[in-house]
Design a protein around this nucleic acid. Sequence first.
DNA 1: ACCTGAACACCGTTCAAGT
DNA 2: ACCTGAACACCGTTCAAGT
Lengths: 217, 217
Amino acid sequence: MPSAAGKAEKSARTRRPRGSINPADIIAGAFDFYRDTPIEQWSIPQLATHLDVGVTSIYWYFRTKRELVAAMTEAALASFYERMPPLRGEGWEELLRNFFLDFHRLLAADDLACDLIVRQIGVPGDDLLGGDPVARNWPRAQELFAALEAAGLPAALAQHAFFTLSVYTQGFLLVERKGRSAPSAASPGDDLEFGITNILRGLRPLLAPTEEGRGVA
Amino acid sequence: MPSAAGKAEKSARTRRPRGSINPADIIAGAFDFYRDTPIEQWSIPQLATHLDVGVTSIYWYFRTKRELVAAMTEAALASFYERMPPLRGEGWEELLRNFFLDFHRLLAADDLACDLIVRQIGVPGDDLLGGDPVARNWPRAQELFAALEAAGLPAALAQHAFFTLSVYTQGFLLVERKGRSAPSAASPGDDLEFGITNILRGLRPLLAPTEEGRGVA
DNA sequence: ACCTGAACACCGTTCAAGT
DNA sequence: ACCTGAACACCGTTCAAGT
């Protein structure tokens, strides 16, 4: 029955009014639609169908796919910032430990955010993002620096500590993610705590270098 | 002049004899061709043209693009293993420090190898690779473990040390690579040495926990 | 100013052969 | 057993409109 065609589905969608989509809706819809899909498999036409808009409407707000992914990275980052719990712990060691345990917990629970923020997948050769997002001006990190200084850790040392622990935690997330599908010989286990504790123990003598009782020498 | 067509370039290539390509040639050609191209921009048809073979010949040896990329990762890993210099240094601390400085130097100098091995880009959701390649049975690492034991570092502690330093170094490579295009506030600088030294200093008291003169308590 | 489908030059992959 | 071009269903992106 070729011409009867009860379901002539072509262009079933009605035209949307102006202002009925905006960048925020597109980004939110993309997070919803792609939460469990590896980034290589994303497709703008498919996203358009999911959002019930024409493909070209997405291109009105984001000139390329990379630009959309970059915007999603910014959004994931903002959400991550917001969800970081308040500082907790007594003394600089506990403050740092809890900060990076929270850091890890939030990103380990969200593969998409981890891919966007830590692995920075899908934004190749980019000038769209300004380098490592984690290291950028981050209000919560400023809070932490203030608290560390109040707890007696000099500013220079606090920066070293932050950078070292940030690098370690991101490396841990990366290795953890790689080992997900096929756990190999050396599995992470709960070694994150070991690594953090060890780094903190290494920092300790830098704060009080004359603790062994040998005088100021 | 529609029909004269002095340069009818269609199918200018002559048919290749059987056995004139093999997986190794394809992988080698891919490294040559793609050394400076972000992986998202790779194209099998273009690679075929570069290798002067039909597209389908590549698909005879690699059933999907992912399979080819996985094979390239294995190859990059083998080359990395080979290029790691011999162990050097006196005592476990120097052995570990030099090992991971070499580790970093080799991968920092080769973006493609770093993407394949450390970031594991282009092999999404894979069972093709067995988790983190770095952590897999690696002859040079076995050597290192033997040398560490000979230098007085207990096996259990050596494994912790290796894992922690491996995670840190990979995190460093990742952050370094992210910060490449647009250097942000906290730049790595030569902080790799700081981080490694700090981790080693943290490990030290685990080896000789009674060094402060307080007895075995 | 915003929304749209059809069109373009590709892509990964398969088909249906050729030798 | 290996090599092949043409074909298929897609993709990212642009064109040329519609309102």
